[in-house]
Design a protein around this nucleic acid. Structure first.
Lengths: 216, 216
DNA sequence: GTCTATAGCAGGATAGAC
DNA sequence: GTCTATCCTGCTATAGAC
C-alpha cells in the first residue's frame, strides 16, 4: 500500500469487474477487459485476487453482500415504524426497497443481474447468497406477513406466498426494459411508482387468498 | 446427406448444444464440448452451422420456437373447451401448460433456462422470442383475462396483471430447486400440483385487485 | 458429410524487473 | 504495488484428404 491514487487499484478492479460481470456474465468477460476498464495492469487481478474465479467471489463478498444488507436495512427501517406493521406496509416497504430503494438504478440493475446469473448457473457464490441473504429475508418476510394471511394458512402456503412476492420483485426488475417496450412510450414518467403500486396490490390480494371480503 | 446413422449429426449437435447452452450458458460451452457430446467431429459444427453463434440461433429457431409452440397449443387447447373460459380456467391452463405441461421436466428446465439467459444478456435470439412468442402470448392472455378483471381496469393494469402471472410461472420454474430446499424434504410428492394450485389462487386474487369485497 | 491437421489467436496465469 | 514480457493452454475456424 505505497501508492495512494484517487482510488485504490483493488477497489477499481472490484467496481469494474462487477459492472462487467453483471452486463455480460462471468465467462464473457476477460481479465484483460476488466483491467482495461479499471485502467490498471493485466497482472493486477492475479496479484490482488489470485485468479479470475476468486475475483468473482470477492465481488460478491465485498460488493454484493453489503449492498444486499443496505436493501435489507432500508426494508426493515420502513416497517419498524409501527410495532405491528400491516401487511400493506410490509409489502409496500419490500417492493419499494427493491424497486425504488437506496440503490441507484444502475446499481440495482447490476445487483439483480448478478443474482439472476447465479440462479441460472449457480456457482459457489449462490450458496453464500442463499444462506446469508435469501433465507433470512424470506424468514422475516413470512413472519411479518403472517398477520395478513388467513389463520389457517399452513407453513407451506406462507412460504409460497413469500416466494410469489419475491418472484414479482425480481422479475419486474429484470424485465423492466421489456415492460417498458410493451407498455409503449406513452407511459414513461413515474412508471416505477406505478409498478410498485401494482405489485403491492396484486400481492396483497394474493396472500389474502381464500379470505376475500374479510380483512384481518 | 449420404450418411444415415441413427440420427443425423446435425440433429445430434442441435440436441447436445441446447442441453449444454442451457446448463452452462453460451460462453461457458466450447464447440469441442458440444461435438464431443454429440460424438461427432469438431469440424461438424462449422460445416453444418457456419459458426458457433449461428448454431446458437439455430437452437432457438429449430428447437426452442417449436417447443414454445407446443406449450402454447397445450394452453390454447385447455381453454378452448368453453366459448368464454373463466379466469380460473385461463390461469389454471396457463400454469399447467408451463409448469406441468407437454414438456418433460428436463425439457422444461432447458427451455426456461435458455430464455432466462436471454433475459439477462439478450442476443439476437431475444428479439425473435419476444416477437414470435412473448407478445402473442401476452396479448391472448390479456384478452382471455379481461373478463375476470374489474371493468375499470385500464390497458396498463391489464398488462401488468399478465406480467405478474408470467413472473410467477417463470420464477417457479427457475427456482424449483430452491423452493424444494426451503420447503424441506417433507413435501416432495405432488409439489408441482401444489405449486400450480398456489399460483392460480394467488394470481386470481391478484387480478381481481381493486375489487375486494365486491365482485364485478 | 465426415474426418485430420493446423492456422491463428485470445485467454488465464506467472516470473521477474522496477 | 505496479509493470513488461512471456508461457502455454484452449479456443474458433478453415483447408483439404477421404
Amino acid at each position: 500500500m505505497k501508492n495512494h491514487r484517487n482510488e485504490h487499484t483493488r477497489e477499481r478492479i472490484l467496481d469494474e469487474a462487477e459492472a462487467l460481470f453483471a452486463l455480460k456474465g462471468y465467462h464473457a468477460v476477460s481479465i484483460r477487459e476488466i483491467t482495461g476498464a479499471a485502467r490498471c495492469n493485466l497482472a493486477a487481478v492475479n496479484y490482488h485476487f489470485g485468479n479470475k474465479q476468486n475475483l468473482y467471489l470477492e465481488v460478491y463478498r465485498q460488493r454484493w453482500l453489503p449492498r444486499a444488507e443496505r436493501v435489507r436495512q432500508s426494508f426493515q427501517n420502513s416497517i419498524k415504524t409501527t410495532p405491528v406493521p400491516s401487511a400493506d406496509t410490509v409489502v409496500h416497504s419490500l417492493a419499494r426497497a427493491f424497486l425504488d430503494g437506496p440503490l441507484s438504478n444502475e446499481a440495482r440493475r447490476r445487483h439483480l443481474r448478478l443474482i439472476v446469473g447465479e440462479l441460472c448457473q449457480p456457482t459457489e457464490a449462490f450458496e453464500l447468497v442463499v444462506e446469508r441473504v435469501f433465507r433470512p429475508l424470506l424468514g422475516s418476510l413470512i413472519a411479518d406477513l403472517r398477520t395478513a394471511m388467513p389463520v389457517d394458512v399452513d407453513e407451506e402456503q406462507a412460504i409460497l406466498n413469500a416466494f410469489s412476492i419475491m418472484a414479482m420483485v425480481l422479475y419486474f426488475n429484470l424485465s423492466h426494459p421489456l415492460i417498458k417496450s410493451v407498455l409503449g412510450t406513452s407511459s414513461d414518467n413515474d412508471l416505477k411508482t406505478r409498478l410498485v403500486d401494482h405489485l403491492v396490490e396484486f400481492s396483497l390480494n394474493g396472500i389474502a387468498g381464500g379470505n376475500r371480503g374479510s380483512d384481518k
